[in-house]
């Protein structure tokens, strides 16, 4: 977009703050991947990026383009909806794969099979 100069200053500041907040949460989530100790702890961290990180990014995008086009533009909402619906699938696959491996290796740190999984 080359019309970014058309943004009034207060909108530009709001958008910038929102983008930075979103980036901050995504960053902390990625940092968690580095700092947490084991696989099961690490897999928690990226959800920061898929929740509040995404939320602030989308809010910034909605604010920016709604003001630029002078009408409400909110198709970004769909990104949030689909991300929320699909994140559990990937996470579950990863965690269950790890759990399967740990159980196969006879690790004592993971719960054993109840009846069937």
């Amino acid at each position: 977009m080359s019309h970014l100069d058309a943004l009034p200053p207060w909108v530009a500041v709001t958008v910038a703050v929102l983008v930075l907040l979103g980036a901050l949460f995504a960053f902390v989530g990625s940092l968690g991947l580095l700092r947490l100790k084991n696989f099961y702890q690490r897999v928690h961290a990226p959800t920061l990026g898929t929740t509040l990180g995404t939320f602030f990014m989308l809010a910034a995008s909605i604010t920016c383009f709604s003001v630029l086009h002078a009408r409400p533009i909110f198709n970004e909402v769909l990104i949030g909806v689909f991300l929320t619906l699909t994140t559990p699938i990937t996470l579950m696959l990863l965690v269950r794969a790890a759990l399967y491996r740990d159980r196969e290796e006879g690790s004592q740190d993971v719960p054993q099979l109840t009846s069937k999984d």
């Binding site: 897999v43 959800t47 619906l85 559990p88 996470l91 269950r96 759990l99």
Partner: peptide
């Protein structure tokens, strides 16, 4: 499952449908 995984700090691990027990981390 969407609620539990969307809330950072908890993840859905597995669900045993015969015993109706949910395992989370």
């Amino acid at each position: 499952s969407c609620i539990i995984t969307s809330t950072p700090g908890t993840i859905w691990v597995s669900y045993d449908s015969s015993a109706n027990i949910l395992l989370i981390h």
